[in-house]
Design a binder for these strands. Structure first.
Lengths: 176, 176
DNA sequence: TATTGTTATACTCTATAACTATA
DNA sequence: TATAGTTATAGAGTATAACAATA
């Protein structure tokens, strides 16, 4: 058993960008030409705020993602969660067990496949997720307050095109 | 001692987006409204390619970032690296030791502070970094081939505004 | 034979406390 | 007293191999 208890610590300092030593003197211009560097820095910045505000629900980003997909896809299976969130099956087991122990989710028998199990939010889980989603949406507004709604949409669109390559029209692998 | 050897494994599967099970059936639309989610997914996608292509140099993303900052900021100190890259000092020690053992970097005495030490690339380090940077820049072109140069610049600009909040004009904390 | 969920486990990443030498 | 670099170590995150039950 890998999980010590139901409630996890969730602590993390997250270092809110303190310019203790000099930092403006350092030339980071080349790294800033790399999308991976910029995307990772941006993600970590937002995640640090996410951790703070979601601590009240004892939800890490991955827990919230799992609940969100279950909420919007009732009956989703463990494997489907893994595929959608890029989590390895062994690493999901413990998370689901904790969420089930907390009474947030329920495992029901799959309608057609007796190996699988459909995942659902409990009544308490729905209440928790509703509050958590509101917090997440508010966090989005707060951390991206420097960007206009249109800039935010542009950012999301561009990011999606990075991690979910355009399989759309004008593709190169068409049969004729 | 935390490092087992000079050369590290660098192995990682990185799962190149295989749609093994269904995945298009899963509704991820809410998560995709969250910048943190999108930024993290994009970063992980690029980093997985980065890991593959940088394996020949035995450099992880963090190693490359360290070398890049030393290359462009000769004499930079350990603390400055930590500040610029958001790495905790204890976690940098091992990386620098490995790079020094590999003959890639050199530690020299700091000109004014005898506690600190200036970091520099060795001749071999400069050759290695030059090749690595070329690989990184090519990777940027390849992984972002769906985006025009202008879209790429827009993406970088927006990401920087997320992780490095605009401290510029029209700020709210002015004295008058 | 392949897939779902699972256990056990190893490895990597990230964080804290505490020490020394110097400022 | 505070800071730079370091050690030791704990905790969280990510990976592989292998198994039973079912498809």
């Amino acid at each position: 058993m890998a999980e010590p208890s139901t409630a996890r610590s969730l602590k993390r300092s997250s270092s809110p960008r303190k310019a203790a030593t000099v930092e403006g003197d350092i030339d980071t211009s080349y790294l800033e030409t790399l999308t991976g560097y910029n995307a990772r820095r941006a993600a970590l910045t937002i995640i640090s705020v996410f951790l703070e505000r979601m601590a009240q629900y004892e939800l890490r980003p991955v827990d919230f993602s799992v609940l969100s997909l279950i909420a919007h896809n009732p009956g989703i299976t463990s494997r489907q969660l893994c595929g959608a969130l890029d989590i390895l099956p062994p690493n999901l087991v413990g998370m689901l067990r904790v969420l089930e122990t907390r009474g947030v989710i329920e495992k029901r028998e799959h309608p057609t496949d007796r190996r699988a199990q459909g995942l659902h939010l409990s009544a308490a889980g729905k209440k928790l997720y509703t509050k958590a989603q509101r917090t997440a949406s508010q966090l989005e507004l707060d951390t991206l307050s420097d960007l206009s709604p249109q800039e935010r949409e542009t950012l999301h669109s561009l990011l999606r095109r990075v991690y979910r390559p355009t399989r759309g029209p004008a593709a190169s692998d068409q049969t004729m």
